[in-house]
Design a protein around this nucleic acid. Sequence first.
DNA 1: CACTTGACCTGTCCGC
DNA 2: TGCGGACAGGTCAAGT
Length: 295
Amino acid sequence: MPELPEVETVRIGLGSLLPGKIVRAVTFDWPKGFPNSKHDVSVFLIGAAVKDVRRRAKVLIIDLDNDYSLIIHLKMTGQLVFRSNDDLKRFGAGHPNDSLIGTLPDKSTRVTLDFGDSKLFFNDQRKFGWMRLVPTIEIPEIDFFKKVGPEPLAHDFTDQDFIKRLQRRPKSNIKAVLLDQTVIAGIGNIYADESLFAAKIHPLTLVKDVPMAKLKKLFQELQAVLRLSIEKGGSSDRNYVDAKGQKGSYLTFAKVFRRDGQPCLVCGTIIEKSRVVGRGTHTCPTCQPKPKGTK
DNA sequence: CACTTGACCTGTCCGC
DNA sequence: TGCGGACAGGTCAAGT
């Protein structure tokens, strides 16, 4: 589930909660998702203090004061939920506010970091997510970080940079290219659909067939939807929650995503759902006419 | 090489 | 109510 805005929301939350906390204990039994040995965890994680929480693409990086870092990918259903011991006592068996989270840990909890006065739960229903403890200095050498594209909201990332990178894949359809993390970092299914709708581009259009003006428009709209979503705490469909276990409200503002069967907010045509690159894809057939030669 | 498809998991929802 | 099948927001390996 989590794309750039959701991971960024978690980063902001953890960034205000974790720095200074010392890891006192770690509970885990998930060799595939968290392959570090008990020995390494006890030597390089227990006793270390959290220094900083960063994000690159959809990956969270928790830097420790011993030159090690935890890198975490939430994939589709991962959650990182922080609870003080007081909250655990108070809300352990209940649902604070409109949270999707009940008693913690629950059956999807894969890893628990215990800070003494509080805990951080890594939940992941589908177990696609992962977490690794690595020397901080080795992070840039990890394959994913070597290959991942630029941050779409970086201040020095321009529309010309964006267009140049998209045009490296002229014969792919534009949605596939937006979703390719090596082209641009952090875009997933929700923000691909939303930005393509805003720029009035059909997702199946080949990159080479999109006029320059529309590529520029796409860049502006992509930045706008990402920024709005971060402001709204991300999108919560079923699983996503922030560091405090709360849902985000962006989907209230989504114009096509999960709005199939409802009228387009621009022209009133019924929004359609189809499959593009194997993913559920939402379009307005009037605002985003299909490219010639597709059915 | 460029590009597309399936596999990884579990849970939920929908139709019969 | 039960059951099979499709589907879910990501990424990689394997396929064409």
